[in-house]
Nucleic acid binder design. Structure first.
Length: 461
DNA sequence: GGGAATGAAAC
DNA sequence: GTTTCATTCCC
């Protein structure tokens, strides 16, 4: 049984940590940490992209003030995601968009986020609450002695003598129906959720007359916008990548039309507990359907360089997988490139800032030659969660994937779909590589593998 | 730097 | 019940 080495990097250990990849018989991919490793010669912190933005628990205590921020609550997480999706940085938006934004500027982001939050279906809210709980637990792990101590009697406090919430509206009585209730949806149904990817609500005008901000019943209900009820995206909205011909397939995978995967793509409860990774359950429904073939096929039509832009969403799973497989996204000639091709060392840009990381979410910055640089952000490595065997767990908390799914849905550019599909393809392709055959029933969102090969030998680590 | 949102936690 | 603060954009 061999073990390959993965160089880990964390902010707390700029020199890097050597992580031993320990092949196990289980369907888990675990890392065991050794704290004495040298940093990769081909990967320095300076080369690495900036760590993704944090969501409270991920924030590093300011080195100057050493103030430990509070863990974010569910709404804060939601709002962060909301603004990330709705924010159009000045300078990158079109004149038309800028004009539209100026008009919309009446309502603040927080206001709109609040509206969206109130209209969020309970099940989606629950997910954010779950994320908040996760953040809280992780926060507690990272800061065992932390205690919230709000500073009273600050200058700003005197101003709020009335402490009347400026705009706390009663929760509207909503009838939120999901797609499964399609048959009963009628004119009295409210607009489905304004989850982060959903459409903006009309801006608030006068707080005194906004007690009921429910949409008019005349607003047509848009099906398929529910985060967890649209495993498949509407054809009219999404342009699926053309299915490559079988001749493009170089893997040994079984032939599997994506349509036949449909029954397995349905909303389901998902969770990931690093303390019991064997019980991890992941849902396939977070991603749109994809074509079970090599990603290279899709790269025919998608500029590989765009796969690694900050706007791209790549699962940490895929990132690590890519690194292990020696694929950095640059596939100049798909027709002549084997499924997994050794690629000249070069920095990979695998840190889309849209990705949210938790200690359980391993982000990878890597190169083809230096396996990959693993970064749990920014929890110190010695505080990573351990599985019962003392290994560091590599996994993807589903909640964050759900957010990623929102990103995908928010993207109206069909190319985004293609990119996502290509990345998903890659995970699938790597699974093929590892297993020899892609399991159509496998959850490709969770890359659980049996390491029955020696990656260090094959990839010359 | 204040305001905006909601929720958790401390007073 | 009241206040602070977590995030992050806008003004």
């Amino acid at each position: 049984m061999s073990s390959s080495r993965i160089l880990g990097w964390t902010p707390s250990s700029p020199d890097g940590d050597v992580v031993d990849v320990v092949p196990q018989a289980s369907l888990q991919f675990t890392f065991k940490l050794a704290r004495s490793g040298p940093s990769s010669p081909s990967m320095s912190v300076a080369e690495a992209p900036s760590p993704p933005p944090s969501v409270g628990v991920l924030t590093t205590p300011n080195a100057q003030t050493k103030k430990i921020p509070r863990p974010p609550n569910s709404f804060i997480i939601f709002r962060t995601e909301y603004t990330r999706l709705h924010h159009n940085p000045k300078g990158t938006r079109s004149r038309r968009d800028a004009l539209r934004d100026d008009v919309k500027a009446i309502a603040s982001v927080s206001r709109k986020a609040g509206d969206a939050w109130r209209l969020l279906p309970p099940e989606e809210k629950q997910r954010y609450q779950h994320l908040a709980e996760l953040a809280k637990e992780q926060h507690a792990r990272a800061h065992p002695n932390y205690q919230y101590r709000p500073q009273r009697h600050k200058t700003s406090g005197a101003r709020r003598t009335l402490s009347v919430p400026k705009r706390r509206l009663p929760s509207p009585t909503l009838t939120i129906r999901t797609v499964s209730d399609t048959q009963t949806i009628g004119s009295s149904v409210e607009q489905p959720p304004s989850s982060p990817g959903a459409e903006d609500l009309p801006p608030a005008v006068d707080p005194t007359v906004k007690a009921d901000r429910r949409r008019s019943s005349s607003v047509p209900v848009t099906l398929g916008e529910h985060q967890f009820t649209s495993a498949f995206l509407p054809e009219e909205r999404w342009e699926r990548p053309e299915r490559p011909t079988q001749t493009k397939r170089r893997s040994r995978s079984v032939t599997q039309d994506w349509v036949s995967l449909a029954p397995s793509l349905h909303p389901q409860e998902s969770f990931f507990d690093p303390r019991s990774p064997q019980n991890a359950v992941f849902s396939q429904s977070f991603y749109p359907p994809f074509l079970p073939c090599s990603p290279h096929a899709h790269l025919d039509t998608v500029d590989p360089s765009t796969l690694f832009t900050p706007a791209q969403h790549m699962s940490p799973l895929a990132a690590v997988a890519s690194s292990l497989a020696g694929w950095n996204g640059a596939v100049p000639s798909p027709s002549s490139t084997p499924l997994v091709a050794p690629i000249a060392p070069q920095p990979m840009y695998l840190s889309p800032p849209s990705w949210l990381a938790t200690p359980e979410t391993v982000l990878a910055y890597g190169t083809a030659a230096s396996p990959c640089v693993v970064s749990p952000i920014p929890l110190p490595a010695d505080q990573w969660p351990l599985d019962p065997a003392g290994h560091y767990v590599f996994g993807v908390p589903t909640g964050w994937d759900a957010l990623a799914h929102e990103h995908l849905k928010a993207a109206t550019d069909p190319e985004d779909y293609a990119r996502a599909a290509a990345l998903q393809e890659y995970e699938h392709g790597l699974q093929e590589r590892v297993h020899g055959v892609a399991d159509p029933n496998a959850d490709f969102n969770f890359f659980g593998v049996e390491l029955d090969f020696d990656p260090s030998a094959e990839l010359e680590f």
